[in-house]
């Protein structure tokens, strides 16, 4: 199984990490979408398991969660989804989700089952580093990396603590706010990346609000090892619910465009 470490050491440019809600808008379409993303050049996948109350997400991903749940996606069914993706291509997968779903599944069993299905890490949106010991032992013994979040208002001491418990990559939130596409980058991200880079060699991946190739290139210039693009891609699903062919084509060309921007940047 391919690790984050392998991906980051093989790449001589910033990794492209698209985010999708598993089962949005339904299991089969979602599978086709994620395969398209892989074919178009995704280096790592960030996948969400839909939750009824996603407090860290803006309207776009909330609606994606609702579409996925309405189509009948269950936590158990996401295991099958992940296996199918891994059968298609051995690409690292990070989950992004909410704690109650893990808690109800049983923390230990969750990490074992999802690692077996092919997941490399599980980022819990509503768990801070203070409670991370509720999941770290299970994640480690199942063989997963432990990814945590740093935000622009994280204090230097907390940043050290978070870095000390993180493996794989640091999920760096570019702004103060929930997920959602934005027209501009926040202006907080360059400083945050440079602070992290001084602190650690763990790859720094930046997400939240990154909405176009120029944003991605700017993040790459600031020294990030990966860019995570969620809401902007999920919008392409939302806008093309009636036309799957167009949906896949737009997702493919968007990912290709961002990837090209990252390539060009690395050749400069």
């Amino acid at each position: 199984m391919k690790t984050y470490e392998q991906v980051f050491s093989e790449l001589n440019r910033t990794a492209l990490i698209p985010f999708f809600v598993i089962g949005d808008p339904d299991f089969d379409t979602s599978l086709a979408i994620v395969k398209t993303a892989v074919d178009s050049g995704a280096d790592i996948l960030e996948l969400g398991i839909p939750f009824s109350d996603p407090i860290a997400d803006g309207p776009t991903i909330q609606k994606a969660d609702i579409r996925a749940m309405k189509s009948g996606i269950k936590v158990k069914k996401t295991l099958e989804f992940i296996r199918k993706i891994k059968d298609y291509k051995d690409i690292p997968i990070g989950l992004l989700m909410y704690y109650n779903l893990i808690y109800q599944y049983g923390v230990e069993r969750f990490f074992v089952d999802f690692h077996q299905a092919g997941v490399n890490s599980v980022l819990v949106a509503d768990m801070s580093i203070d409670d991370a010991d509720e999941i770290i032992p299970s994640a480690k013994s199942a063989g997963l990396d432990t990814v945590f979040i740093v935000t622009p208002n994280t204090s230097p001491e907390r940043m050290k603590l978070i870095v000390s418990k993180t493996t794989g990559f640091i999920y760096t939130v570019s702004l103060l706010g929930v997920t959602g596409s934005r027209s501009e980058l926040s202006g907080m991200v360059e400083e945050l990346i440079s602070k992290l880079k001084k602190l650690t060699d763990i790859p720094v991946c930046v997400g939240f609000g990154i909405s176009c190739a120029e944003h991605a290139a700017a993040i790459a210039r600031a020294g990030a090892d990966g860019v995570i693009i969620g809401s902007k891609i999920v919008e392409l699903i939302e806008h093309n619910l009636g036309n799957h062919e167009k949906m896949l084509a737009e997702i493919s060309s968007f990912i290709t465009e961002v990837k090209n921007a990252l390539r060009i940047h690395s050749n400069l």
Binding site: I55, A56, Y99, A125, D126, M127, S128, I129, D130, D131, F148, I149, V150, T151, N153, T154, S155, R158, I162, V173, L176, G177
Partner: peptide, 11 residues
């Protein structure tokens, strides 16, 4: 109880 919130709310 506890404080199961996103990191951004901790400060």
């Amino acid at each position: 109880g506890g404080f199961y919130v996103p990191e951004v709310l901790i400060p």
